[in-house]
Design a protein around this nucleic acid. Sequence first.
DNA 1: CTTGAAAAGAACTGCCT
DNA 2: AGGCAGTTCTTTTCAAG
Lengths: 151, 151
Amino acid sequence: MIELDETDRQILRALRTDASLSAGEIGRRLGLSQPAAWRRIRRLTENGVIAGRRLVLDREALGFGVTVFLGVKLATKGRVSLDEFERAAAAIPEVQTIEHVLGLYDYRLRVVARDLADFERILRRRIMTLPGAGNVEANVMLSEERLVGPL
Amino acid sequence: MIELDETDRQILRALRTDASLSAGEIGRRLGLSQPAAWRRIRRLTENGVIAGRRLVLDREALGFGVTVFLGVKLATKGRVSLDEFERAAAAIPEVQTIEHVLGLYDYRLRVVARDLADFERILRRRIMTLPGAGNVEANVMLSEERLVGPL
DNA sequence: CTTGAAAAGAACTGCCT
DNA sequence: AGGCAGTTCTTTTCAAG
C-alpha cells in the first residue's frame, strides 16, 4: 500500500472524473505550479496508483441499448473448469467484464446487446452453452450511476 | 445511433485501452495523418460516442483490498423510496457504483473496503440501514478481468 | 518546494487534392 | 474524406533559488 498525502488525493479526485485535464490545469486548481503537479502525477503513475487511462464510450450511441448483469453458478467446479469457463466467456464479444466471485454465484458477467431480442440470442446461443454453466440469473440494467468511491 | 466506419472503430479500440495515446500515434498505427486522426477523434467526442476519459486507479495500491458486489431487494418500492435509496446509497463513500436493475434485485452496488472486517462494518452500519433495504445478497470479488466489449 | 526557460511533442487551423 | 504546412499550446526536462 502506498501512502498518499491530501494533495495526491485531490489530484486523483480531479483526474478520475476527467483524465484529460492537463498538469497545468490541475496545478491551477490546487494552487501548485505546473511542474509540481506534473511530478506528482508521474509519481502516481510510476508507483502504480494510476493504473491507466480509459475512454468512456456511450454504449447507446454505439447501438447497444441493453446492459445485463448475469450471475452464473457453475455446475462443476474444478480448477480446469474455471479456466475453461473464463476463456470461453472472454471469447464472447458482447461480454464486457468477467468477475470471479465468492458467494451465491461463481461468476458475474456484464453483457451488452443491441436490444432484448439480441440479448436473448446471446443468452441462448452463447451464455447457456458456456462450459460448466449451471444456474444463470439475469438483471437488466435500468440506470446506472457511476460514482467515484473513496479516496 | 451513430454510424461509424471501420477506421472509427479501430480508433476507439486503440483508445479505450489507453486513452493517453496521441492523435499522431493513432494515425501512425492506422496509416492516417495526424490531423486526419485528430479530426475523427474530435468528431467522435462531439457526437457523444466518446463520453469521457477516466483514470483507472489501482484499488489495492490505495489500500482497498476487498471489493464486494451487493444485490439489494427493496422492501417497499414507490418512486419516492427509489430516489431516497439512491441518495442514501450515493452518500456512502465506499459505494463505487449504483445500478438500478430489473430482475431478482432492485439495485446492484459495488462496494470497496480495506478488508473484510472493514466491509462488515460498512455492511452493518451503512448498507443494512439504507432506507427501504430488504434482502441484501453479497458476492466477494476474487478476480476481475476487464474486457473491452463489442465494437 | 518554487520560478523561468528551453526543447519536444501534441493540438489545432487553413488550404489543397 | 485525406494530406501538408504552419501556428499555438501543453508537456517535459533542466537550471537555479
